[in-house]
């Protein structure tokens, strides 16, 4: 019903043009992405001659991925990113959901004061020099936990979770507190199970942010051993510095196409995001995707 409501009586010509624009959007986004995937799976000898339009590999080969997964520097960076993301998200979810729960209890005196504090935290951006000094003073410089702790709470996610929490029926809370359950019990035994999907959604947003963090990682994690995947990718792909591959051991790159190897590194970096993507779509944008209203 929804999909044809405006199509009735619509001129065929404009429908054709709208479809054409959609196809254009698809091509602009997909062709550069798929071209990289194709190059990563191609025979290294043939990559140089590949057109930017080509989305299927030329002479199939897995050699780039073999190099990536046998290179200690890339492994190290990959593992660092995984550890930071997993531990970081666990911390994010616990701290944010506790705060969101407290902030949505009507019996919390001084709530607007806290909200003003959070909004101020969102508006003010300190200089990078100050962030650097604070991390140094906290003794966290060049230690992996710094990137687990960085952005423990973001106000955006806090407010998002508060919106979901405030929709939980009050009657359930009252029933729980009559049973004598304390706030912590209510949060972990009643609230979290009831709000599984919002919490996972917020967790996904945090996970994407941790995984994609590049600038702060490059400033706060200075040694090769603590490099994250994004920082590695930046040195290798953006700065074109292939010595990073050898930072934790020697490597033989004869006959390897740098473009192919770079493409494969990008694919590996994006893979975890692609795994999370269907979930984010399903729950966060399901409303707008199925034609209903998300509120």
């Amino acid at each position: 019903m929804n999909s044809n409501k405006k199509v009735i009586g619509a001129p065929r010509v404009s429908t054709f043009f709208i479809n054409l624009i959609m196809v254009f959007v698809l091509l602009v986004i997909l062709v550069p992405m798929l071209n990289l995937v194709a190059k990563s799976f191609s025979d290294p000898a043939q990559v140089a001659g590949m057109s930017g339009w080509r989305v299927i590999p030329k002479g199939f080969s897995l050699v780039n991925y073999q190099i990536i997964f046998s290179n200690p520097a890339i492994w190290r960076a990959l593992m660092n990113s995984v550890v930071i993301t997993v531990v970081g998200v666990a911390l994010n979810v616990v701290v944010t959901s506790m705060a969101a729960y407290a902030m949505t209890r009507p019996e919390l005196p001084g709530k607007s004061l806290f909200m003003a504090f959070f909004i101020m935290m969102m508006i003010f951006e300190p200089g990078i020099v100050q962030e650097y000094f604070v991390i140094k003073d906290l003794g966290l410089m060049d230690k992996l936990p710094v990137m687990m702790l960085y952005n423990t709470v973001t106000v955006y996610n806090l407010v998002l979770l508060m919106r979901f929490f405030s929709e939980t029926p009050q009657s359930i809370l009252e029933a729980a507190s009559i049973d004598g359950a304390g706030h912590l019990n209510i949060l972990f035994k009643v609230f979290l199970p009831m709000n599984k999907i919002p919490i996972m959604t917020v967790g996904m947003f945090y996970a994407v942010a941790h995984w994609n963090e590049f600038f702060r990682s490059s400033v706060f994690l200075t040694s090769n051993a603590n490099t994250t995947l994004q920082v590695f990718l930046r040195r290798f792909v953006v700065e074109g510095d292939s010595t990073v591959l050898a930072s934790l051991g020697s490597i033989d790159l004869t006959g390897i196409s740098m473009t192919g190897l770079k493409s494969a590194t990008i694919v590996v970096t994006v893979l975890p995001i692609l795994c999370m993507y269907p979930f984010i779509l399903k729950h966060y944008t399901s409303g707008v995707m199925s034609g209903g209203v998300k509120e």
Partner: peptide, 9 residues
């Protein structure tokens, strides 16, 4: 959902 490093690549 892609990082700027990836987009630049």
């Amino acid at each position: 959902f892609l990082s700027w490093v990836v987009i630049a690549g």
